[in-house]
Design a binder for these strands. Structure first.
Lengths: 152, 152
DNA sequence: AAACAATCGTTGACTTTTTCAATGATCCGT
DNA sequence: ACGGATCATTGAAAAAGTCAACGATTGTTT
């Protein structure tokens, strides 16, 4: 085997004009990243999605399910499933909305924060792996550009 | 209403630490982009995936289905479906592999190239819309970073 | 204050997408 | 020529996504 297992070679097809298509590049990087992330999160019984929900529950921002759906680009019914799962496992709790009693606020439990810390550490290793070809400066640049593209 | 309909506001939750998570940023930008792209491509009976296959078929690189699967991060059986569809509509043809008779090379038809040109133009408008918040230089930078992250 | 439309979370049905194992044909190394 | 690997393909099973409807609650209009 080669010197490092994460070796990548530029595929022949990258030469095509579509190799610069932003949509495709995003899809590909997202796909390979998800694979790595989900593999790493499996140790904690999480996936990318449930980890995102858990993270936001741990953030202190007290998100409603609707906000989670909007922010994570999910259907509200998908959020129900994700929160159900996390709640059954005692990582998260549903609390009544403060101004709006229809809304439910998702907050983390102590155990939820414990798991989240471990999972986050594992994920950071993943990101480093995925963006290994980028310098630290480029890494920061990429995040900034993605954020700007999303929210100006 | 605002001056432009594509107005975006930074959501409250973006303040969370996860708002800088590369995985999430990629997922979100990819999600919103796919929505726009698929809507634009619908006029030509295409979706993001079939457009990618068609593009590579038009590239002159004579990709095999296996190469398409690898490059597009798809299961080989998904490529079969995509090519079936494009072939039934006369946009693409399966040709026998040159060195390898197991492999099938996907090449575009005249009609395929005609549709592709139209679709590509529509997609370029989409990309401009999606990356409207970025300057031309940042746009180029983003592409470069994504490519580098993928293939070094 | 009564009536109305709109929103939140939830459920369930439905479709699409993804994943995976098995198959015949072909290639490659021995 | 044999054996193991790879290609495209099929079909089945699992997962994910979409969508309409509902009760509860909110904000708005009259």
């Amino acid at each position: 085997m080669g010197p490092q297992s994460t070796e990548v070679e530029t595929p022949r097809l990258a030469a095509a004009k579509i190799g610069s298509d932003v949509g495709l590049l995003l899809a590909k990087l997202h796909a390979t990243g998800s694979l790595l992330n989900n593999k790493a999160l499996a140790d904690y019984g999480l996936r990318e999605r449930s980890f995102s929900v858990l993270t936001l529950a741990c953030s202190g921002l007290e998100p409603t399910q609707r906000e989670l759906a909007d922010f994570l680009s999910l259907d509200p019914s998908q959020v129900v499933s994700l929160v159900d799962d996390l709640e059954h496992r005692g990582l998260v709790k549903r609390a009544q909305g403060k101004q709006d009693r229809r809304a439910k606020i998702i907050v983390s439990t102590t155990e939820g924060r414990r798991i989240h810390n471990k999972a986050r550490a594992a994920l950071e290793v993943c990101e480093e792996t995925q963006l290994a070809a980028l310098s630290e400066e480029e890494n920061v640049q990429l995040r900034a550009l993605l954020k700007k593209a999303l929210w100006g």
